[in-house]
Each structure stands twice: as C-alpha cells, then as structure tokens.
C-alpha cells in the first residue's frame, strides 16, 4: 500500500480496483460532468459487484482512507433488488473527490447482504433503513431494530417494493373507505399486469 498516494483520479482508481478485485467487478463506468465557466469536472464511478465480494471491495476502499458513505439507495427492479452504496473517496482534496457508486444485486428469494458496519460504522443508519423499507436482511448487523417505521406497521410489508410485498393498495385508498372496498383499477406503471 506504500506506493499509493491520494488523491487518485478515476482512471487510477479503476486500475486500483481492477488489480485487487479483478473478475468480481462488472460494468465499471467512469463519468465526468463538466460544470460552470471553468468547466471543472465532477467525477463519478459506477460499478456492479457480486454480493459475495462486496465486503472485500469496501475493505479495499478502506485501505485508501476511511471511505465516506453518503447513503445506500435501493429499489425493487422486478426480478431482483438493487442496492447502490454511494461512497466518496478523496475528500479533503479540492476538486478531486470521486463518487464511487457500488451496485449490488440481491435475488428476491434470498435478499441478504453482509454488514459493513465493522469497516464503516456510520453505515448503521442506512442498513437499518434498507431492512425495513426493502425487506433486505443485513447479516451480522449490530442493531436490527426498526428505525423510521412505527411498531404498528405490518411486518411483511415494505414501502419500496413493487411486488405483492409492496404498498399499492394501502397507499391509494386509505383516505376513502368506499373506494377501499373496490379493487384497484389503475395500472401499475412499473409493469404490473395489463
């Protein structure tokens, strides 16, 4: 690790991750968006990683310096659940910060992922949120209680799911009792049955 000097530009970071993670990284894309009159670039990396290797990837990032985890976003993609961990490396170097957006795909029949709280302790808030909103199980999470949702919220319903574990009926008809009795007629824009 002695040779590596921060800040790394996106290409160097790609090389760094390629060397160490090799096959387990897919679809690595570098994006630079130029802004303002001086056209200073905002640098981003998007990549997909196998969930078995996700922890290793975070460990490799942590060898550079303590990675900043902005948040993990997540969504129901139909056949699988996609989590995107938005990391930031090179903070503290003006204009050099690179957003590393790590995508992990979890199959719906086994939506589990291992915790990264031992490497990035600040990840606990977002991991707890993913459990209650997407029905993801975070293995070895130090605190698995609900964070945002109330105790009375149903156990097997997850607000961000678009399948039968989602919220479709509850959300649309709670305000009107008569309507609640009738089945929903509006089509699901995300490819429900026609």
């Amino acid at each position: 690790m002695k040779d590596i000097k921060l800040p790394l530009n996106p290409e160097e970071l790609e090389e760094y991750l390629d060397e160490r993670m090799g096959e387990s990284i897919d679809d690595l894309e570098i994006e630079e968006i130029k802004k303002g009159i001086k056209q200073r670039a905002m640098k981003l990396i998007w990549l997909t990683v196998e969930r078995e290797d996700f922890r290793d990837l975070v460990k490799e990032l942590a060898k550079l310096h303590q990675p900043h985890l902005s948040v993990a976003s997540g969504s129901d993609m139909g056949d699988f659940i996609e989590l995107i961990y938005h990391f930031a490396v090179n903070y503290g170097y003006p204009g050099e910060e690179v957003s590393v957006n790590v995508k992990v795909h979890l199959p719906k029949d086994d939506p589990t992922i291992s915790t990264i709280t031992d490497i990035v302790p600040g990840a606990i808030t977002t991991e707890r949120e993913k459990q209650e909103f997407l029905g993801v199980t975070v293995e070895d999470i130090p605190d698995s209680r609900r964070l945002w949702l109330d105790e009375v919220f149903p156990e097997d319903k997850y607000p961000w799911r678009w399948d039968d574990k989602g919220m479709e009926e509850q959300s649309r008809y709670v305000h009107d009792e008569d309507e609640a009795a009738t089945p929903p007629t509006k089509k699901n824009p995300r490819g429900g049955d026609d």
Partner: peptide, 22 residues
Amino acid sequence: GVKKDVRIDQPYAAYGDLDLDY
C-alpha cells in the same frame, strides 16, 4: 478538523469557478 465540504471536494453549481477554502 475533518476536511469535508462538497462545495470544494466535488464542486456543483458554480462553486468550481469560485475561490473558497475549508
């Protein structure tokens, strides 16, 4: 003492053109 400021680290809007420090 942590140098974290998105305006400087990853300039958005017009911050890339301006002169600022942590």
